[in-house]
């Protein structure tokens, strides 16, 4: 589903590469934790998959397409196959929960009846049934993140990218979010999650890929957060 072949990313000429010859294969339906300290290249990895950045060297394949040769007008089509969730939720404050999720479908031109049947379903799935009319500031952090996940997943993308989705949440709430991501993963969605949260990684026992200053230092199935444990 996602394949990196010797990918290097240098932001500024002469600077240390943010990613240094990383090769990685993520299969369809896998759940992968991307761990490593700040500045290790986790976010760069996700940005490359979203094609917000282009690789300086090497090749990136996402959903069967080589992103280096993908023309920019095809990028929106690529992004429709990827859901993305962030630490800061990125919700629209003046829209209700329903509208926030519906927005993702509206802007890719889905018909109204499709929106009105799909959005309640996905809100039910993330556990927000009955809160459709609330605005983001009336919700707890965990609920806001659920809205963000609903928005990312409403179009049923085959890939879900999460950039520290539990970074702003307390452990109990985080656990709820992880259960939700696990459920989404069980529907066949490939999930790649960048995180600092060692408890969660240790609990979930999924594949762990560790980055350190741009290099891949570990790729372990059913791994834990710290390599020394």
């Amino acid at each position: 589903m996602i394949r990196f072949e010797n990918v290097t990313k240098v932001y500024a000429r002469g600077a240390r590469p943010a990613l240094d010859r990383v090769s990685l294969d993520v299969e369809r339906g896998e759940f992968v934790f991307l761990v490593g300290s700040s500045g290790s290249g986790k976010s760069t990895f996700l940005r490359l998959v979203l094609r917000e950045e282009r690789a300086s060297a090497g090749r990136v394949f996402v959903a069967g397409k080589e992103l280096g040769s993908l023309s920019s007008w095809k990028v929106p089509q690529l992004r429709r196959q990827i859901g993305a969730v962030f630490q800061d939720f990125r919700l629209l404050p003046n829209k209700t929960v329903f509208e926030n999720v519906a927005f993702a479908l509206q802007v890719i031109g889905k018909p109204r009846h499709h929106i009105y049947t799909t959005v309640p379903d996905v809100l039910e799935m993330v556990g927000l049934a009955g809160k459709e009319k609330r605005r983001p500031h009336e919700l707890s952090g965990g609920e806001q993140q659920r809205v963000a996940i609903a928005r990312a997943f409403v179009n049923r993308p085959p890939i879900l990218l999460c950039d520290e989705p539990t970074g702003n949440l307390d452990p109990t709430t985080s656990l709820g979010i992880m259960r939700l991501l696990d459920r989404i993963n069980r529907t066949g969605t490939t999930v790649v999650m960048a995180t600092h949260d060692d408890e969660i990684v240790d609990q979930m026992r999924k594949r762990v890929v560790e980055l350190s200053t741009g290099s891949m230092v570990r790729d372990q199935s059913r791994g834990v957060y710290g390599s020394d444990r």
Partner: peptide
């Protein structure tokens, strides 16, 4: 910017944005 950022993320076409 917030709206257009989300639009780009969920794959709205440039034209649409």
């Amino acid at each position: 910017r917030r709206e257009t950022g989300i639009m780009r993320l969920v794959g709205a076409s440039t034209m649409f944005i």
